[in-house]
Design a protein around this nucleic acid. Structure first.
Lengths: 249, 249
DNA sequence: CTGTTACATTGACTGGTGTCAAGTATAACA
DNA sequence: TGTTATACTTGACACCAGTCAATGTAACAG
């Protein structure tokens, strides 16, 4: 009932988190009606970035963390030498900036891979709110823990697996993340360039290319540019061997 | 004054966090007198593990996170296939288990590398407490963020750097962590075996051995077994090139 | 002292990936 | 639509680090 009323009141500028199809992803535990209201009070919605635009970089003072609404974001660390290390790809429903909570400046640079809209959560207000809402605090801890685990999985992938295994793992990870969003898990468009994949997985671009064509020749995938079709998911899982079946991130 | 009184009252079983020489490391922000008191109420001190004993493993239900008081701990992920991936080494003043906050079972296995004593913080009570103490909550977020950053740095090291660079980075990291504890940054004893170093850095044991002797022949270090002396810190920094000078972890 | 075990070092050889270089397809843009 | 820049693919070759195998060393029990 209260929900029905809010649905009517919702202005186009400030959509309700309740209405958001992604709320079950970015806020799975903040189920309390009141909690959601409080969250909506602090969230700044609807910011949009064009392809290639920076959401923040390592010199930006930390103000907020971001939930991807649509599009996708890549985060990377830029060293003094100018080298880049891609640390993650973030798709709708996923949170960017957890590695920078309570830092002075962001620990990485976040760049939109395509036209991307985000919800912005000011960290000071978020901290204040989590102090009042145990459920939300618990959820924050859970997501940050998950982020650490993801990064450990990535480290494992980088240190123990071959090029084929790494790429198979990434494809499976993307697949399961598309499925979560009720999109086809076998037929999707890569949001990132081969270069980003290579950098993320610690490989040369040429190696990524070669593995893609090898997979294609084996009938495991079909790839034309960024369009990918997974023809034999099981084969991909075999390639990754004991690497987490539910995806590396 | 209040402190003087507590000093007298402190029982041998329950030492005050105030007295702990590591409090500036594991609790740098919880400076409030009252906050420390509250923390002491929930912490279980003085648990001791012998070399090789598990503090927890991946099948253990999450109950607590742990601060190392003395000794050292290694954490690793064990895959279904039985492969091990070392994810970190933890020394006095550092927190173990942040990757498992709000999980069902621990995300990794923690094993004492030597005789090790820890302080145990039950996560449910810790969550409850951080809800009341904004400073402590802020500190938790900071530490978890830091853990994510560390892991990203590791991923970068694994994907972009040669064997020599990785080992130099680890030596420098250990060095700076010994310095934080007011111990010699150039003359210390490695808490872990070559095998663990190799696993952590994504190398073969033989490679680690070879690099150690190579460094030794170049006059950069002196190593006999686990005893290490850094003879030329600058040379090590040169080897790591643009990799974080303040250490990877 | 001696056998046992775990840990560490060293050498020879191999292979997966990076590098360099060239060519092709695709996207961006005027 | 043409032009250019960017992204992607493919091939040839070299090299770092893994693997296999043997030896050396330290800790420890009997």
């Amino acid at each position: 009932m209260a929900q029905a009323i809010r649905l009517q009141q919702a202005s186009p500028l400030k959509a309700s988190c309740n209405q958001c199809s992604l709320s079950n992803l970015c806020l799975p535990l903040a189920v309390e009606e009141n909690d959601l209201d409080s969250l909506e009070d602090i969230v700044q919605q609807g910011k949009i970035y064009n392809r290639g635009e920076h959401v923040f970089d390592q010199s930006t003072p930390v103000r907020s963390c971001f939930a991807v609404k649509s599009g996708s974001i890549k985060t990377s660390i830029i060293t003094e030498g100018g080298d880049e290390q891609v640390t993650g790809f973030f798709m709708p429903g996923e949170l960017v900036g957890l590695d920078s909570m309570s830092s002075e400046t962001y620990a990485c640079t976040a760049k939109a891979l395509e036209r991307t809209s985000v919800c912005e959560f000011p960290v000071d207000k978020l901290e204040e709110l989590t102090g009042k809402l145990p459920e939300l605090q618990h959820h924050m801890y859970r997501m940050m823990s998950q982020e650490i685990q993801n990064s450990h999985q990535l480290a494992m992938l980088l240190s123990k697996n071959t090029a084929e295994e790494r790429i198979a793992a990434l494809l499976l990870s993307l697949s399961s993340r598309f499925r979560r969003r009720r999109m086809s898990p076998t037929n999707f468009s890569l949001p990132m360039a081969r270069n980003d994949i290579a950098n993320f997985l610690g490989l040369a671009v040429e190696t990524v290319s070669r593995v893609f064509t090898r997979f294609q020749n084996q009938g495991i995938i079909r790839a034309r540019g960024r369009e990918v079709e997974l023809l034999d998911v099981e084969a991909l899982q075999v390639v990754t061997r004991d690497f987490a079946r539910q995806g590396c991130q």
